[in-house]
Every structure is written in structure tokens, then in C-alpha cells.
Design a protein around this nucleic acid. Structure first.
Length: 273
DNA sequence: CGGTGGACCTGCTGGC
DNA sequence: TGCCAGCAGGTCCACC
């Protein structure tokens, strides 16, 4: 479900509702997600107040009035939403934070690829989850030259390169197809020997597609919602992903689906080279 | 070191 | 109707 725009959408929707709220109690109902849940650390957040919410890559960082940060990753199927305190417990509701205003912030994740961690705030960058992450695509340091520099000496297809979180974070399987479509670059184009002008187009495309998707509240293909349960709208703007056999919006050639690294890729065989 | 392919987990859909 | 294969938005790790 969640790539950078969806995670940012959750962040923006939760921030005004959570800022200043305190966690009254925490329920942990599963022993593990991708990793074992640290029950003691999670229960230890009770009594603390939310100071802010940041995002790094696809991680939500919830800062509290304690030297620890609550870190949430939605994986493939995670949802992090506010509900009424007495709302019935959802299937796969693995962690629930009861707030001082009576509402409940819950983490639901059927596939359990997500993460709920408690980490020391002043050492987040050194934590193994963050230490090797690449550039933020909406940050100032991200541009064609930065991509080109990171591509030096590398090989392999462009799709895999743009999805490599050690290069640039936040770009998942939907938005990589969209960015390649915008940049008119074939997903199998080799990273090696790519011209500077192409890197500039790619960086611009990554940035613009992510920014546009954030502005539309993310992509709701199935069941993604923000922290208040609202669906996103960017799915109507998708030009490649999920559009196999539909005409390309530029040249009307049918969009093609291929498989790379066991994941679907969608592209226009005529205008992406 | 870098690239590739499989593993992790559950649920839904479409074809037979 | 029932069953099964295939697919799904992410990340990590073993293996070349």
C-alpha cells in the first residue's frame, strides 16, 4: 500500500489530531510483526505526550516528551488510523494506543510486514533501519546530478535503481512506473551510460510524481486511507501502473506489463526508451 | 561491493 | 460451489 505519498498523507492527517495528546495506555496484541514487538518499550510510552510527527523514507517518526521516538512502518498492508475509543477491535489490530481524548490510534496490518518500534530519538540516524537510507526525493539535495553520481559504476535496470532505498527513498512499485513514464525512460534501460539530461528528467519525474500524489492524498487502489479514514485520489492520475492494455495518455500505444524481480512493471513501449 | 532471487505473511480474485 | 494458482503498495538476506 504505502509509498512515500501515502506515508506523508498519514503523517499530515495525524499531526493536528495527535500533537499535544498524551498516550494513556498501550495494548500489544501480537508477539511480532516483521520483528518481535518490544512490549516493555511500547507500554513505557504510556503517560507521554506527542510533540510532533516526522517522516523519514517510509517511516513515521512520532516524537514524544521522552527521549524515545515511536517509529511506525506500514509495510505492504499496514494502516495507522484514529478511531473512536470504543470502536470494535479490527482483525489484525496488533497495537493500539489509547489517547487522553478517548480516541484510539491503531496499527492494523494483515500481512505483518510492517514495524512498530521504539528507538532513542538522538540516535535514529545510527539505527540499522535508517543508517543506510539514501536521499529524500522531496529534499533539496535530490536532483539529476545526485542520481547520476550514485549511478557511477553501477549496472542493472533503471527500475531497480530507482527503487533502491540506498539511492533514493520512498519510491515503491507504483510510483517507479509512474516516474519512468513521466521521464519517458524504459524500465529496463541500463543504469550505465545514461546521459546527464536523462538523469535530470528522472529526478524531476520522481519529485513531481511524488509531490503530485501527496497533494492528492496518496493512491487508494484497495483500502489505503489517511489517519482519519479518508481515501486518496491519485489513482485517477496514474498513467502507467495498473493500466495494462489501456492506451498511453501520450501516444495511445497500449501500456505493457512486464515482470522485473518478480514485481509488475507498467510502461509504454513506444514513448519510453 | 553490487546485483538477483527468494523469503516473510495473509487475503482476494479469477479460472477451471 | 470449491479449490488453487497467482497476485498485492516493502524490505532483508543469502548467494553468486
Amino acid at each position: 500500500m504505502p509509498e512515500l505519498p501515502e506515508v506523508e498523507t498519514v503523517r499530515r492527517s495525524l499531526l493536528p489530531r495527535l500533537e499535544g495528546r498524551s498516550i494513556a495506555s498501550v495494548e500489544v496484541r501480537a508477539p511480532a510483526l516483521r520483528e518481535p514487538l518490544d512490549q516493555d518499550a511500547l507500554h513505557g510510552l504510556a503517560g507521554h505526550q506527542v510533540l510532533g510527527i516526522r517522516r523519514r523514507a517510509k517511516y513515521l517518526l512520532i516524537d514524544l516528551d521522552t527521549p524515545r521516538t515511536l517509529v511506525v512502518h506500514l509495510g505492504m498492508s499496514g494502516r495507522f488510523t484514529l478511531v473512536a475509543g470504543d470502536a470494535p477491535r479490527a482483525a489484525h489490530e496488533h497495537v493500539a494506543f489509547h489517547l487522553d481524548d478517548g480516541r484510539r490510534l491503531r496499527f492494523v496490518d494483515p500481512r505483518r510486514f510492517g514495524q512498530v518500534l521504539v528507538l532513542p530519538t538522538d540516535r535514529l540516524e545510527d539505527d540499522r533501519h535508517f543508517a543506510h537510507l539514501g536521499l529524500e526525493p522531496l529534499g533539496e539535495a535530490f536532483d539529476g546530478a545526485a542520481l547520476e553520481a550514485r549511478a557511477a559504476g553501477r549496472r542493472g535496470p533503471m527500475k531497480a535503481f530507482l527503487m533502491d532505498a540506498k539511492v533514493v527513498v520512498g519510491v515503491g512499485n507504483i510510483y517507479v512506473s509512474e516516474a519512468l513514464w513521466r521521464a519517458r525512460v524504459h524500465p529496463r534501460r541500463s543504469v550505465a551510460r545514461t546521459a546527464s539530461a536523462t538523469w535530470v528528467r528522472l529526478a524531476d519525474a520522481v519529485r513531481s510524481v511524488l509531490a503530485d500524489a501527496v497533494a492528492e492524498g496518496g493512491t487508494t487502489l484497495n483500502d489505503f486511507t489517511d489517519g482519519e479514514g479518508n481515501a486518496g485520489y491519485f489513482q485517477v492520475s496514474l498513467r502507467a501502473y495498473g493500466r495494462e492494455d489501456e492506451p498511453c495518455a501520450r501516444c495511445e500505444t497500449p501500456i505493457r506489463r512486464i515482470v522485473q524481480s518478480n514485481r509488475s512493471t507498467f510502461y509504454c513501449p513506444r514513448c519510453q526508451r
